[in-house]
């Protein structure tokens, strides 16, 4: 193999598609590579790295964002599909609102946490879904390896203002 490395120009395959969508309340109009996943667009192009990549296969939910008012995995969405959509990321949720989650121990290593918080915040904003779904079922798309989930569920209960489950 070669002994000397010759730097090559960056292969910019972008600008093939231009798309417009609403991100955290602001309109953005950007050129994208059509192969780009929404997760990459957010993290690397728009410099919003709060959404994490845990698996790239739609299992762990660390990349959860809200698209047109529903949770979705940003790793499974081609960016061109969000044209005309409203996209909300973890960056739209103020840290000051998260005290109940903190107090309950909803985060440990923090890698799954932004996705957890996005889903939890959606549940909080749509608490009628709790009439026909348990919190544990609604949170099942967010894998956490640290907390055992109690900290997350307890935190969400506190956040929503529901009295805690009566467990010591």
């Amino acid at each position: 193999m070669q002994e000397h490395f010759i730097p090559s120009p960056i292969h910019d395959r972008s600008a093939a598609v231009s798309i417009r969508f609403n991100l955290n309340g602001r309109d953005v109009d950007i050129p994208i590579d059509p192969t780009e996943r929404l997760l990459d667009t957010l993290r690397y192009r728009l410099k919003l790295p709060g959404s994490k990549e845990g698996c790239g296969e739609g299992e762990c939910g660390a990349c959860t964002v809200i698209i047109d008012d529903l949770p979705a995995n940003a790793c499974l969405i081609p960016t061109f599909q969000v044209r005309g959509c409203k996209v909300r990321t973890i960056e739209s949720i103020p840290a000051s609102s998260l005290q109940p989650m903190l107090e309950a121990g909803a985060t440990q290593c923090g890698a799954c946490t932004p996705g957890v918080v996005v889903t939890a915040n959606w549940i909080k904003e749509h608490s009628d879904v709790l009439a026909s779904n348990t919190m544990r079922a609604l949170m099942a798309g967010n894998l956490c390896r640290c907390t055992g989930y109690d900290g997350i569920i307890d935190g969400l209960e506190k956040w929503i203002g529901k009295p805690p489950g009566g467990r010591s």
């Binding site: 529903l70 979705a72 779904n133 609604l138 798309g141």
Partner: peptide, 12 residues
């Protein structure tokens, strides 16, 4: 529908 993936998949 309820048993497909989780809500993030059910929505898409």
């Amino acid at each position: 529908a309820r048993q497909v993936g989780a809500i993030q998949i059910q929505s898409r």
